[in-house]
């Protein structure tokens, strides 16, 4: 039996006379491997950090004390002109709304396109099962490109304004949501779909009445999460490209001293908006996925 358990070849056998010793030796070996790997990994991080630092304009240690300098400069000027801040915050509300609109429109359009792509690429529901890999790779490609890159190219063609930003975020959203949507609809129960098919329902009707009601809570939850991400993305897009609150922030930052009260106002409303949206979407999402509690 022992020969079978340890293989047919005669050779070194674990010394079973002292199992305690053998076990401890094994554990020790494992720990040494773990420790060596950890040390190697930390050395890799340290080397990488040194390389990154050598390519950086300023180094880490001399920058560290400066870390607080900029925020304190901004905050002290903001505090000195604190009477202006509420007025400035009101002044920037329209661009904040533009940023939010960009995020909302691109989430909605991206969501609609993603729903279509997801239905076309879900096993069991797709009208053309042979094309499933094609649609999946399409979504992968849409997801791979950073939205800022798409936006910059589109700005060159379409000129400034919110449309390039919407299109860019929309493309990325379609890819990201399409994957999540199709994963959710793969878990949907196919019995209602079969029932509808037996009544002679067309493909669109089967999806609309058989699948959508099942996946709607999950989809809505993903949509909300994406909206959170897209609000941030559209602020960044404004900063790199143009349009919305990001562009205002860039102008105020580049102006430097004298406009820091504007920076404070923009930071405040941006921070507040992001927190409010995160919180409310958190709450809505738990309600959607765990069900509304009655009473």
């Amino acid at each position: 039996m022992v020969d079978v358990a340890f293989g047919p070849e005669p050779g070194k056998r674990p010394d079973l006379s002292d199992p305690r010793h053998a076990y401890l030796q094994m554990v020790r070996l494992k720990r040494i491997y773990g420790a060596v790997l950890l040390v190697l990994f930390i050395m890799l991080l340290a080397t990488g950090f040194r390389v990154a630092q050598s390519r950086n304009a300023g180094d880490f240690l001399s920058g560290l004390p400066m870390l607080g300098a900029f925020p304190s400069e901004v905050l002290s000027e903001g505090w000195a002109n604190r009477a202006n801040v509420p007025g400035l915050a009101l002044h920037f509300i329209p661009s904040l709304i533009e940023t939010l609109n960009i995020a909302a429109v691109s989430t909605l359009l991206g969501g609609l396109l993603a729903a279509l792509l997801a239905m076309l690429s879900t096993r069991g529901l797709a009208p053309f099962p042979r094309l499933i890999p094609l649609f999946r790779r399409t979504m992968d490609a849409l997801r791979a490109l950073p939205d800022v890159v798409i936006a910059l190219v589109l700005i060159y063609v379409l000129g400034g304004g919110p449309i390039p930003a919407v299109m860019a975020i929309c493309i990325h959203t379609t890819g990201a949501l399409g994957k999540l949507f199709s994963e959710a609809s793969e878990n949907a129960d196919l019995k209602p779909v079969e029932g509808l098919a037996s009544t002679g329902a067309r493909w669109g009707q089967r999806i609309w009445l058989g699948v959508l009601p099942q996946v709607a809570p999950n989809w809505a939850s993903y949509l909300l999460m994406r909206f959170e991400i897209n609000v941030r993305a559209s602020a960044i897009l404004g900063f790199v490209g143009q349009g919305g609150i990001g562009a205002d922030l860039k102008v105020a930052m580049q102006w430097g001293q004298g406009k820091y009260d504007e920076v404070v106002a923009i930071f405040l409303i941006l921070f507040a908006t992001i927190v409010v949206i995160d919180r409310s979407s958190d709450w809505l999402r738990t309600r959607l996925t765990k069900g509304a509690h009655h009473g």
């Binding site: 950090f49 990154a52 630092q53 390519r55 950086n56 304009a57 300023g58 180094d59 880490f60 920058g63 560290l64 400066m66 870390l67 300098a69 900029f70 925020p71």
Partner: peptide, 11 residues
């Protein structure tokens, strides 16, 4: 905030 302290670059 970090760009102001450490300057531009990969770090």
């Amino acid at each position: 905030i970090l760009v102001r302290a450490f300057g531009p670059g990969p770090m």
